[in-house]
Simulated scan of single mutants.
Amino acid sequence: MDRDQLRVHPDGAVLGGVFAVLLAFTACRIADTWGGGYWQFGCAAGAVVCGLALVRRRRRASAAAGGLAVATGAILVSWYADLPAEPGPAMALALSVLVGSAVSTLPAVAAGAIAAGGLAVAAGSLLTSGVPASALPPVTMLNAGGWIAGVTIGLSSRLLAARNRTIAGNVRRHERLQLARELHDVVAHHVTGIVLQAQAAQVLARKQPGRLDSSLTGIETAGTDALAATRRLVTLLREAGDSPTPHSEGLADLAARFDGPAIRLRLPEDEPDWPPEVTSTVYRVVQESLTNVSRHAWQARSVHVTVARNGDAVTVEVSDDGAPVPARHQNRRGAYGLLGMRERLEALGGTLHAGPRPGNGWTVLATLPLPGRREHR
């Protein structure tokens, strides 16, 4: 069993308290109306189903199936032994939780089977109701209402998760199309260098044969770089579904066009000689970060953008001084835009960290290693 299965979820204590109250209420009501120990069987069966509802995240299908089986057994025993009607309030709530959890997460066939089983249990409560057929028994109404609530909540959660997956897939497809357009530019960049050096080699072969070896070495290096760059981009296209986007304008132009807080831009002093896939990825990280500032940090007064080379890696940091981000919203800020950035950086061997700053504001920090390059002659 992994750590997630052993973790105590925040709703567990609250739900357990509700179950305990319902079980105690049911026991008192049965003791007052039926007398004796008639409450013992129903409360014991209800406690078992409630326990399965509390540990449902470990094995949702098994927990739901077990709860339905216990409920079915409780109905049959209650009917045969003339005991109080089942399932009681606590068991009905537990079954609603189990059915909703199964419908929201299990595969369609299993989710449908659990939902059908829950409906059958609700209908089976008619056996123990002791009410004329012309009236709908309260215990059946209780269980039917719990089943409807569980299925409705489960389906809503399932549809929301499917919507999120669809949006994420659209983001990846959009980036993949952009990569297809850039692949031509990146390859052309390297191939042009190879052609120029090959032309220079022809001249050297006629006029300075002694320098031909160095020129051929440069051609070999340029070809190796072209192959490596192409492989990196194709890996992004096939696996990450993400892509850098070519831009003729620089970061300074991007900052000048930004319609938002004042930007303090720090760039390398010299024009960096980085591979095209690196420079375009840097641009996209800054662009996406500024987009998130304009959408989510409307109270920010300034934005700091720093691009620097630290050894064999490029770092990009974008931070703002907007209002503090509530903990429940931290995972939503720019989630889909940063999804593509993170996958691209990881595919190129880099990392992306995004989160609130101490006090207030938000920071995006990207690190992208530079591929090994030999000096061209």
Rank of each mutant, 00 (worst) to 15 (best):
D4V: 14
D4K: 12
D11L: 11
L15D: 08
G16L: 03
G16N: 06
G17L: 00
V18D: 08
F19P: 01
A27R: 07
C28H: 14
G35L: 01
F41W: 15
A45C: 07
A45D: 08
L52T: 05
R60A: 08
G66Y: 02
G66K: 05
V70M: 01
V77H: 05
A81Q: 13
A81H: 12
D82L: 09
P84R: 02
A85Y: 03
G117A: 01
V121W: 01
A123F: 08
P132I: 06
P138H: 01
A144D: 01
G145Y: 02
S157N: 13
L160R: 10
N164L: 13
T166H: 13
R173F: 15
R181I: 15
V195N: 14
Q197F: 14
A205G: 09
K207A: 15
I219C: 02
D242M: 11
S243E: 08
S243W: 09
T245F: 06
E249Y: 14
F258R: 00
D270T: 06
P272H: 03
D273P: 12
T279F: 01
V286E: 04
Q287T: 10
Q287W: 09
S294D: 08
Q299T: 15
P324F: 00
P326Y: 02
Q330N: 15
Q330K: 12
L339K: 07
L345D: 00
E346A: 11
G350H: 01
G355E: 00
G372Q: 15
R373V: 03
